[in-house]
Amino acid sequence: MEQNFDLPEIHTPENLVYTKTKVLTDNVMHYCPGCGHGTVHRLIAEVIDEMGIQDQVIGVAPVGCSVLAYNYFDIDMQEAAHGRAPALATGIKRVFPEKFVFTYQGDGDLAAIGTAETIHACNRGENITIIFINNGIYGMTGGQMAPTTLPGMPTSTSPYGRDVKMMGNPLKITELVAMLPGTYFVTRQAVHTPALVRKTKKAIRMAFENQKLNRGVSFVEIVSNCNSGWKLTPVQAIKWLEENMLPFYPLGDLKVNGEMVSK
C-alpha cells in the first residue's frame, strides 16, 4: 500500500483550483490512454462553460476516433457522415446565425474525404469554428496512412514508411486554408505540455469569441499524438511528436484577425 499524502483539510470550495467542467458528461471517454482527444474535448468544454454558451452551442462530430464525441459534451450535437461536418455546420449556422457552431474533426475526416467541404466552408467564410486534430494517422480503423502522415512514417498501409513518390505528399491543409479570404483566425497548437494546453485553450476561446464578430471561419489545428497507431507509450509518443511532427507542422498562429502572420 502506498503512503498517504492526502490533505483533506484543504479540500474546500475556496481552495479548488481545478476540476472537470460540468460541460463534459461523466461518461468515461473511449480514447486510448494519453490520447490528446480527451484533452481537447476538455478545453472546448471549458471554453463553452466559461463563455456561458452551453445553451447556444451546437457541435458537429466527425467520423474517426472522435465519432462518439457527442457522448462527452453536455451540449446539443449532430453526427456527420465522414468529412461532411463543415457542410452540416454550414446548414446549422445559416439557419441559426445567432448560435455558436463548431466542428470537431480528425485529419482523415477534414483533410482527405472532407477536403472539398473544408476548403469551401473556409472559402465562403462560414462563421463557424473548426477544431482539427492532426495525429498523422487513421486511429479508429487501426493505424492506416492519413493525408497528414509524415514522409517516411510507417503506418499499416505504408508499412515501410510513407514513400512520397508512390503515395503522395502530406497535406498541410492548415497553411492552405490560411490563404483563403474566408478564414479569419488560423492557428496550429498542441496539447502535450501544460504550457501548450494553456495556449491551445486561449486559441479555442478566441475561435469561439470570433463567432460574435461574424468575420469568417476560425480554424484551430491541434497536433496530437496517436499512441496506439504510432505503437509508442504515451510518454514516448510526446517525445516522438516533438521530434518529428512539430518540425513538419510548426506551432503558432498563421492568421489572426483576418491578417496573415508574418514569420
Partner: peptide, 14 residues
Amino acid sequence: AIVCPDGVITVYKS
C-alpha cells in the same frame, strides 16, 4: 490536471 486527457484530477491550493 490540465494535461490529463481524462479529466481525472481535481486540484486544491491553500
